[in-house]
Design a protein around this nucleic acid. Structure first.
Length: 475
RNA sequence: GCCCCCAUCGUCCAGCGGCCGAGGACAUCGCCCUUUCAAGGCGGAAACACGGGUUCGAAUCCCGUUGGGGGUGCCA
């Protein structure tokens, strides 16, 4: 079995393309087949080399390796020219000199979809400046056999005489795709549903080509991925680049797992699969028919699960690696520190992404770390007891053990004096020292932060409070 | 307009004629646990688009309607 993905480098690689790649890859691996990467860049005006690199790196990151390629259609011109030659000499094509405007006009005036075939019988010569169109049979039906959708029938009368070569001589994607699929001996074409309407054209072309009959590939049209408005995900409109998720600190294994579930399930309720599991479990025949919404909330959940599953050392390593890849060298160094290692298990439990992990320990690493205004107001300014709690905490933390357990004892004792439970006394202290209303467990954080910095921040909060309440004589 | 695809909780899936007074997961709500927040545990609310058939029996099969989506390019 031989499959391929054929992305066009006209933008970043998005989750839809990644899912298509994943399904193809799983199918190929499961059947000991070959997975081909082919870049469809026949439209020179719209393609950019950087996007090719982006596709390759996204696939690599996901763990989806290709066995052949990347082939580039832009470098296979002679194959398409040969095919055009053959089709022309066998009478399947005709030249067309209609301008874009004329085509549009004629299309509008006609009841049938697309170009009305005006040039079909004009007997125009094949020459530069003229496009080449395929003579679609006027009668009959073209059937597309699809693993997922069954037999889809298209009346030939509803298919227009499509262009196979532009007036500049370059082939169009349908032609290039068919030629490549034939020469690369592609056995299964697994791609997004949006390609279904052009498939009968490919079938017609396939049958017109080649002296020896080559069996048609088996088609499988995957349901599209949609946004929250249930429109097909688009590179321009929706922010769904694989690269972005990577930069945000998602794990490739979580992404792969989530993507696999968008349109497929094993049927028994299991939801966690590694790439290796998918090779044995994935089945093209049980792919869904209807569009799926890419739900970031669920992806986030999966990512958290995968993050928590990691041994702590691996978690730390992944943090470092992620920061380094994203060229955040300072953050990478922070992640590699002994301080982070001490807090890592607590971070791991709470972070849903690697960037969240970074944010949870900012209080430890950011110089001149300040309490967020909102947290300051809520936990300190609006709390009439905050001033005295902070002052007393400062006093108690000045001496004695600075280990979490001891700190906890001190603070809960302090709390009792104020008639507050532990959760309530720690609020102003947390805001003062960790800078936020929520975050890592307080005492462990204090311990790692150390006495000196903890006291400094308590002092800063006390001062800030005094400055914020000049009218308050007790402050 | 024309062609094609699709239709189960908010979302992703299970269901492929009786086991469904519809199951799981995410999200959501409540409670428990608790050092804030998470994580975890327990519980709740939440769906077969509609109308006709077929059948002893339909979420499951057929037809239609409605709704959504995709395509309709000398883009892929």
């Amino acid at each position: 079995m031989r499959v391929r993905i054929a992305p066009s480098p006209t933008g970043y690689f998005h989750v839809g393309g990644a899912r298509t790649a994943l399904y193809n890859w799983c199918f190929a691996k499961r059947h000991n087949g070959v997975f081909v990467l082919r870049i469809e860049d026949t439209d020179a005006e719209r393609n950019k080399e950087e996007w090719v690199a982006g596709i390759a790196s996204a696939l690599t990151w996901l763990g989806i390796n290709w066995d052949e390629g990347p082939y580039r259609q832009s470098q296979r011109g002679e194959h398409y020219q040969a095919a055009l030659e053959e089709l022309w000499s066998n009478g399947y094509l005709y030249a067309c000199d209609c301008t874009r405007e004329i085509v549009l006009e004629r299309t509008k005036a006609n009841a049938t979809p697309g170009y009305d075939g005006f040039c079909r019988d004009r007997g125009l010569d094949r020459q530069p400046g003229r496009a080449l169109r395929f003579k679609v049979p006027r009668e009959g039906v073209t059937v597309v056999t699809d693993v997922i959708r069954g037999e889809v029938r298209f009346a030939n009368s509803t298919i227009d005489d499509f262009v196979v070569a532009k007036s500049n001589g370059n082939p169009l994607f349908v032609l290039a795709g068919v030629v490549d699929d034939r020469e690369m001996r592609i056995s299964h074409v697994i791609r997004a549903e949006e390609h279904l309407p052009t498939t009968p054209k490919a079938v017609l072309l396939w049958e017109a080509l080649g002296v020896a009959a080559l069996p048609l590939p088996v088609y499988a049209h995957l349901p599209v991925l949609v946004n929250d408005k249930r429109q097909k995900i688009s590179k321009r409109r929706d922010r769904v680049a694989i690269e972005d998720y990577r930069a945000q600190g998602f794990l490739p294994e979580a992404m792969v797992n989530y993507l696999a579930l968008l349109g497929w399930s094993p049927g028994d309720g299991r939801e966690y699969f590694s790439l290796e599991d998918l090779v044995t479990e994935f089945d093209l025949g049980s792919v869904n028919h209807s569009p799926a919404f890419f739900d970031e909330a669920k992806l986030l959940h999966f990512n958290g699960v995968y993050l928590r599953e990691l041994p702590v050392e691996s978690f730390i390593a992944r943090c470092c690696q992620w920061a380094a890849e994203d060229a955040q060298s300072q953050v990478a160094a922070d992640f590699a520190s002994a301080e982070f290692a001490r807090l890592a298990p607590l971070v791991q439990e709470r972070a849903a992404t690697l960037s969240e992990a970074a944010s949870l320990v900012e209080f430890l690493f950011v110089a001149d770390y300040e309490t967020e205004t909102e947290s300051f107001e809520k936990a300190i300014l609006r709390d009439p007891d905050a001033g005295s709690i902070l002052a007393e905490a400062r006093e108690r933390l000045e001496e004695g053990s600075f280990e979490a357990a001891a700190l906890k004892g001190e603070i809960s004792d302090l709390g009792e004096k104020h008639g507050r439970k532990l959760g309530k006394v720690q609020a102003p202290i947390r805001a003062a020292v960790l800078g936020r209303g929520v975050g890592l467990p307080l005492f462990e954080s204090l311990e790692v932060l150390g006495r000196a910095r903890s006291l400094e921040r308590l002092d800063a909060a006390i001062e800030r409070l005094a400055a914020s309440r000049p009218e308050d004589p007790s402050a």
